[in-house]
Structure formats: C-alpha cells, structure tokens
Nucleic acid binder design. Structure first.
Length: 350
DNA sequence: CATTCGTGGTT
DNA sequence: TAACCAAGAAT
C-alpha cells in the first residue's frame, strides 16, 4: 500500500509547484524546513482560497509583519485593511488572536504538535495537520478538498460528501508515509490541484493512474459526489455615501462578529427583502441608478447607493468621518468597494 | 450536524 | 447568467 505513496513523492520531486512560502523538495531533502510562521500564514490564507489569490497577500503580509512577534504587536485595523479583498474576514481576526496566543502562551514559537496547534484560534484539523507536516515534518495527514477528491477517486467511493468525510480521512491516513510526510502532504494537494482536478481530470498524466479504482471503473469525473445545496436567495439593502465639504467620507467599522465583521463599510440599512431606510444623517439624498451587486457564499446582495454632500459642521448619528487623504478604497471589503466605485463619479461631479 | 462566512475565476 | 469551485473554521 505504501509504495504508491512513494510513487507520488517521486512525481512531486519532478512536478512540485513553486510557491513563495514553500521549500522545494530537493532543499527539504537536504534538511531545510520552511519558517513555521510563513507556513501558518499561507495555510490560513489558503483556507477556501486559491493559490493565485493568496500569493500577493502572503508577500504583503510577510513584508509588513515578518515575524509572529510583529503580527502579535500589529494594529488590528491595519491587519483588517491589509486583508481587505481576500474574504472570510474571521481569518484575519483569528490571525491576530493566534499570533498573540503564540507569543503569550508559547514563547513566540509555533508548537510542533498537532493537538496543541489545534487549540489555537483559526487553526482547525486541516491547518493543524498542514503546519505539523509541512513546517515540522511530523507524520500528520492533511485532508482538504483536494485530498477528499483524490481519495474518493483512488478508492472509487460513491458516498456523498460531507457524510463520507470520515471514510476519506481514514483512507488518507493509511497512505501517509513515515518518511517525508511534509512533502507527501504537499504532493497530494498538488496532485489534486493540477491532475486530479474537479472537472476533466488528466488521468493519463496521473502517477496514480494504475492503482486508481475510479480510473478503472471510468467514474473519476463524477467523483466525489456531494449532497446538493439549496440555491442562494437575494437580499436587498441601502448604502449611504456621505461626503463632507472638506472631502471627508462617513464610514463605520462593522461589528466584530458576523458578515464582514471588523471591516470598514458604509453606513446602511439592514439587508433583507424590503429594507427600511436608515440614513446616518439628514441631508438631501440622491439615489443613484446603478445598484451594487455582490454575491456572498449564501446570498446575493443588491445595494441601492444613496449619495449626499454635507457641510463641514455636519454631525452623523453613527459612523465617523475619514479625512480624504486617509481614505483608501483598497481597505474596504469588495461589496463596499463596489458601492464606492458607483458613487465616486457623482462625488467628483458635485 | 447544519449554517455562517468572501471572493474571483471557470464553465 | 447561474452554478460551481478553492490548501476550512467556528458556532
């Protein structure tokens, strides 16, 4: 059984993808391991996020906060602003919590232990196994979407996810070798990302073509099965963009938990079927023709954009004015940035 | 155990 | 255009 793991490692030696946070297989076999901080940063960013999207964010974060001590001492608003656009903002909040826990409780050193890693904020079963194996070369088994798909095909398992996850996890553990577990973890995920893809898998180029049960049965492309999900509803809301005579814009920091938690945004109504107007101040509001459309994981959002210009003495019922030189649309989550993009021409022309 | 939580690319 | 998908975690 284990010899097929070695086959995969041989494939990885020749086909490993290059990533800024990764130590290539030849260097790893010479005894070089990656910086656990960089690995942790990458794995948190990679949760439900593509490698392509993570690259520049990882570079930026490593430049701004090169060590876990820097991250622990970082200003929360700076980290949230730097994370803007990457999504799943609870990850950024947990990034700070985790860094501070590592410094406060673990002497500023990431623990080389799966069970201890699992106790840290934002580190679940996948990420704990990824850090343990990739950063410390411990024989832990990563089970992400790639591994689930590869195992479902390798063993021709037709039970739908997520119910089948325990079986897929057990299979993945059976295959994890004692030698080079870190490279092996990265190898299975690379295989899933480049060969054993969700659609149109390149079975002809797969190092596991021979042992693959789904390839033999001709079922690879239809695996893994998944329980169908319900369709996403549409919610509506109103976003208010206020500009003061000196150019300052009215923004508010959203509540620390929930959707876009801790992020900067425009004051607005609740989001639902028929939102009640909730202007942050009394003004001569102008409703723009174009709505901001944005899709979250579980609903579509259509925001009506309302714009007002107010004088320098204006007082808002909520939010706070941000001076024009301090405003950075890049610090907004995408839904809010779309609102700004729609409002910007009107702001300039009035 | 089901739901909540982003975003951009692909089909 | 709508659905699907990506190195999941927290509740």
């Amino acid at each position: 059984m284990r010899d097929i793991s070695l086959q995969l490692l041989a494939w990885y030696d020749a086909n490993a993808r290059e990533m800024p946070w990764r130590v290539p297989p030849n260097a790893r076999q010479n005894g070089t391991l990656p910086d656990p901080y960089a690995v942790w940063m990458s794995e948190v960013m990679l949760q439900q996020t593509t490698v392509a999207a993570v690259r520049e964010y990882h570079n930026k974060f490593m430049a701004l906060w090169p060590s876990v001590h820097d991250m622990a001492a970082a200003d929360d608003a700076d980290v949230m602003a730097a994370w803007a656009g990457l999504g799943y903002y609870a990850r950024a909040r947990n990034l700070l919590k985790c860094a501070r826990a590592v410094v406060a409780d673990h002497g500023g050193v990431f623990p080389a232990d799966y069970a201890v890693l699992l106790t840290l904020p934002g580190i679940g079963p996948y990420t704990a196994a990824a850090i343990a194996s990739i950063a410390f070369d411990l024989p832990e088994t990563v089970v992400d979407g790639n591994v689930e798909r590869v195992m479902a095909r390798l063993f021709d398992i037709h039970d739908p996810l997520p119910k089948s996850k325990p079986v897929l996890t057990a299979r993945a553990k059976q295959l994890t070798p004692d030698t080079r577990p870190g490279d092996y973890a990265q190898a299975v995920m690379d295989l899933g990302a480049t060969i054993c893809t969700p659609r149109n898998p390149s079975c002809g180029a797969c190092p596991w073509q021979q042992p693959c049960a789904a390839n033999a049965a001709g079922t690879a492309a239809e695996l893994p099965k998944k329980t169908p999900k319900k369709k996403t509803p549409t919610r509506h809301g109103i976003a208010y963009v206020v500009q003061r005579a000196d150019g300052a814009l009215l923004l508010e920091t959203r509540p620390a938990s929930g959707l876009l938690g801790g992020m900067l945004g425009w004051p607005g109504s609740e989001w639902g079927d028929a939102p009640e107007p909730a202007p942050p101040l009394d003004a001569n509001w102008q409703t723009l023709n174009e709505q901001a459309r944005h899709t979250f994981t579980h609903f579509h959002l259509r925001l009506t954009v309302m714009v007002a210009k107010v004088d320098a003495r204006a007082q808002a019922r909520r939010g706070s004015f941000v001076a024009a030189p301090d405003f950075d649309a890049g610090a907004l989550p995408t839904a809010m940035r779309k609102v700004f993009d729609i409002a910007a021409p009107t702001l300039r022309n009035t």
